[in-house]
């Protein structure tokens, strides 16, 4: 079977999918990055191969997410693209008439507005990660509720407690206050969902036209309480696609397919066993000018002390830049 591989390595989760020629998902992996993107990708690839019922001839590989460049080097990606484009592609693939994509991941959140399948506007949170998956993770562990049960508990609440959602720090002290004065836990949990949605709509999505059909994706879409809060705030139905938590990976596989079909290139994929290679990242400070840039270097172990340097980045100028030759920058 011919297929395409998509890999999305974010701050919290690492997701991999294999699409067949008809762009259907044949296998998917959702796992935690745990601060080790290379290991997460290598382990993910091994797991993914185990899931395949028949061997897949990979025709193209896409990488996205905040570790996309690193991933691109490790696996030999053909398309290394940003996660906004990848999510828009995947949402359009799942629901061709989609107008609005709400995406909340581990540390970032996005809103993408589409018209006739073309993205026309987007926004992505900047430095503040309040209201993203990490924050929910933190709060659920503080409340002693496994994150998987968070949404279910929110659904049992008749109403939500009023929680300040503007800032994660304030939200937390507000929640503690509500606990201390005796609010039921399920109302606090749902109140937090409402606060995050309010924050999302008033800050990130401010001034954007949120039109139906609306698709809600990203890891946080697993939380039914968030879906309910979005639907109440928007007074519209919000759809969660079947593969909501691996949409970035699906999008990058689609981007890889598109690039490969437009060029005559053959894939640079190193195979599912690129997991067998040892990679080493290192950094050093450049002393060539007053900017003192931090340069990151990734090398493949080859028995020598430094290894075979595959790529380098991080400088403000191109003095140290070494781009992996495989990647089509289109």
């Amino acid at each position: 079977m011919d297929g395409y591989l998509g890999i999305d390595v974010g701050s919290v989760s690492t997701n991999l999918v294999v699409l067949d020629e008809n762009e259907e998902v044949v296998a998917k992996i959702y796992r935690r990055t745990q601060g080790k993107p290379i290991e997460a990708v290598q382990a993910g690839l091994t797991e993914l191969e185990d899931l395949l019922t028949e061997p897949v001839n990979v025709l193209g590989v896409g990488a996205t997410g905040s570790a996309r460049h690193l991933t691109g080097v490790v696996v030999g990606a053909d398309a290394v693209r940003n996660e906004i484009t990848a999510h828009a592609m995947a949402a359009r693939h799942a629901q061709p008439d989609v107008r609005t994509v709400l995406e909340i991941g581990g540390q970032d959140s996005k809103v993408i507005v589409l018209q006739d399948g073309i993205p026309i506007d987007f926004a992505m949170n900047t430095v503040c990660a309040a209201g993203t998956g990490s924050f929910l993770d933190h709060q659920s562990s503080r409340l002693g509720i496994p994150i998987e049960e968070f949404g279910g508990i929110a659904m049992t609440a008749e109403r939500g407690s009023q929680i300040a959602g503007r800032c994660g720090v304030f939200a937390e002290s507000d929640m503690i206050h509500k606990q201390q004065v005796g609010h039921p836990t399920n109302e606090i949990v749902y109140g937090l969902c409402q606060a995050l949605v309010r924050n999302y709509l008033n800050n990130l999505a401010k001034g954007k036209d949120i039109l139906a059909p609306i698709v809600f994706q990203g890891g946080v879409a697993a939380n039914e309480g968030m879906k309910r809060a979005f639907e109440e705030a928007l007074e519209q139905e919000v759809t969660i696609p079947e593969h909501f938590n691996v949409m970035g990976a699906i999008g990058s596989a689609l981007l890889a397919k598109r690039i490969m079909s437009r060029t005559d290139n053959t894939t640079h994929f190193k195979g599912f066993h690129s997991a067998d290679f040892e990679y080493k990242t290192s950094s050093f400070g450049c002393a060539a000018c007053a900017n003192s840039c931090e340069i990151i270097q990734i090398a493949q172990e080859d028995g020598s002390e430094k290894g075979d340097v595959l790529a380098r980045w991080g400088g403000r100028c191109d003095k140290w830049d070494l781009a992996p030759t495989s990647i089509t920058q289109a």
Binding site: N82, I84, T85, P119, M124
Partner: peptide, 10 residues
């Protein structure tokens, strides 16, 4: 870089 790329794509 992420935003620029996405904007140019758009």
């Amino acid at each position: 870089v992420t935003r620029l790329e996405a904007f140019v794509d758009l």
